Computed example of a mutant assay.
Amino acid sequence: MASLPSFRPSRRLFTAGAALAGVGLGVPLLLRAQDRIERPALRICVGEKASFYHLPLSIAERLGYFAAAGLQVQIDDYGSGAAALQALLSGRADVCAGAFKHTLSLQSRHQYCTAFVLEGRAPQVVTGVSLRSLPDYKQLEDLRNRRIGVSALGATTHLAATLVVARANLRPSDVSFVPVGLGASAAQAVRSGQVDAIVTLDPLITQLEQKGEVCVVSDTRTLKDTKSLFGGPMPAGCLYAPEAFLRQAPHTTQALADAMVRALKWLQTASPGDILKTVPPPYLQNDRALYLAAFQKLREAISPDGLIPEEGAATVLRAAAGFEPELAQAHLETGRLFTNEFARRAKQRYEA
């Protein structure tokens, strides 16, 4: 594998106090169950809510965990992580369910959002080579001068694609990255020959695998393969919000974390039947067996407790520095990227 961009942590980055990030935000260390929820009605924006990437969010909603925590939550699906982020920044939502990487990108532009509960501890993105376009594919170097489909330029799928081709000592300019979205549009791009390879999520990649349409060459649905590609723990989907929201509404934030961690705990022991009964029928796409097969392949990627790994920010920064030049020069403060205070209290609550 080609070496990742060199990364030398700045003093500010790792002395900001990741473990005590909640203190830096002025969040009380102890919140009682009877404390008043400041924002009982709120909006969460998300991109592609039906994806496995945000399955914990859907489970918390479907099983009534938000309501049980005293919240009236409206979840608005904007179709992509970038669009959901814009909804948050424009004030159309209070909290965003999106990629942890967004918190770094925002801070490099002096916009401060803090992640407070993790949905996924692996990105779940998978690279598949089209056997229609490249029936004689043998190695990653065969992707030279080929078209690689990604969900959107700048998305995690795009970042993963640049790292995959780097393994063959290919530069990003040696291939063409084509935005094809997710779901049906991405499937059509493969089947029509619009792209020669695809970097996408489940259940699509499992469907393409089962039909013999792609050969998987990189897979971040497992922790081992994620570490191999990114060089360390790579926090993925999470709930994040502007710093002001966490500071002004700590009880609301705690209630959100409680609901999400409860959903994560449920997912750790849920049976296939439980999953099929709980997710909205459209998620199954009229193929229950496919949905369950995909779920089993990525189950390890789902966070068991909502805690963001302390070294995760360094991994994201190292992987993305060559992808987003502004990050390479940024002096990021870990304590403003994420806090585990809320998820840790929720975890203690549900372990009791």
Score class of each variant (00 low, 15 high):
I205F: 02
T206D: 11
T206V: 13
Q207D: 15
L208M: 14
L208W: 06
E209G: 03
Q210E: 15
K211Q: 13
G212Q: 05
C215S: 15
C215D: 07
C215V: 14
V216C: 04
S218F: 00
S218V: 01
S218T: 03
D219W: 00
R221A: 02
T222E: 11
L223I: 12
K224H: 14
D225V: 00
D225I: 00
K227G: 02
K227E: 15
S228F: 00
L229G: 00
L229V: 05
L229C: 03
F230H: 05
G231E: 14
G232H: 07
P233A: 14
M234G: 04
M234F: 15
A236Q: 03
G237T: 01
G237W: 06
G237E: 13
Y240D: 12
Y240G: 13
A241P: 11
F245A: 06
F245R: 00
R247T: 09
R247Q: 14
Q248E: 15
Q248K: 14
A249N: 06
A249Y: 03
P250K: 00
H251I: 11
T252F: 01
T253I: 06
L256D: 13
A257M: 05
D258W: 14
A259Y: 08
A263L: 13
L264G: 08
L264E: 03
K265Y: 14
W266L: 08
L267R: 11
L267Q: 15
S271D: 03
S271H: 03
G273D: 15
D274F: 11
